[in-house]
Simulated assay, not measured.
Amino acid sequence: MHRRLFLLSTAAIFAAPAIAAESFEVTLTEAEWRARLDDLAYRVLREEETERPGTSRLNDEKRAGTYHCAGCDLPAFASDTKYDSGTGWPSFWEPLPNAIGTREDGGLFGARTEVHCRRCGGHFGHVFNDGPKPTGLRYCMNGAALVFKPA
Score class of each variant (00 low, 15 high):
D130C: 01
D80K: 06
A11D: 06
G106P: 09
A111W: 03
H126Q: 06
A20V: 08
N142D: 03
A70K: 10
L58D: 07
S9W: 08
R138N: 04
E32L: 07
D84E: 15
E32K: 11
D73S: 14
A151P: 00
D130N: 07
A64M: 01
T135D: 02
A144W: 00
D80F: 07
F92H: 06
R52M: 04
P95A: 08
T55W: 02
P150I: 01
F6K: 14
A18Q: 15
I13M: 15
A21T: 04
T102N: 08
A145S: 12
A12F: 08
E25Y: 03
G106A: 14
T87G: 07
G101E: 05
G131Q: 10
A21I: 03
P90Q: 01
R43M: 08
T66P: 09
H123Q: 07
R4M: 12
A144S: 05
L37C: 11
R118T: 14
G110P: 13
I19E: 15
P150N: 04
A151W: 00
E22H: 11
T113Y: 02
D130S: 04
C120F: 05
A35T: 09
S91K: 02
E104I: 06
R112Q: 07
G121N: 03
G65L: 03
G110T: 08
G106Q: 12
Y67G: 06
G71A: 13
R112F: 01
D60E: 15
G143L: 00
T29I: 10
A35G: 13
H126E: 06
F24K: 06
R46Q: 15
V147H: 11
M1L: 07
I100C: 07
D60L: 09
C117G: 08
G122A: 09
N59E: 10
A15V: 14
L7G: 04
G131I: 01
C69Q: 07
F92K: 04
S23P: 03
G101F: 00
D130Y: 01
L146K: 00
D38L: 05
D39K: 14
K149N: 09
C117S: 08
V115G: 08
N129L: 03
A16Q: 09
F6E: 15
C72N: 12
G71S: 12
A99W: 05
D60V: 00
A76H: 02
C69D: 10
K133Q: 15
K82C: 06
R4G: 05
A18W: 09
E61C: 11
L7C: 07
F124N: 03
L40T: 11
G88P: 12
R4A: 15
A64Q: 09
L7K: 12
D39N: 09
T29K: 13
N98I: 01
A70Q: 04
H126R: 02
D84I: 02
R46C: 12
E47D: 13
A18D: 13
D84N: 14
G131A: 08
G71D: 10
A21K: 07
E94C: 05
F14Y: 08
S23E: 14
P134I: 00
L8M: 13
K62F: 03
V115Y: 02
R119D: 12
F148H: 02
G86A: 04
A12W: 06
T29N: 10
A151H: 10
L8D: 13
S85W: 00
D105L: 06
V147F: 00
Y67F: 13
N98P: 02
E22I: 02
Y83R: 10
E49R: 13
G54H: 09
G106R: 13
H68Q: 12
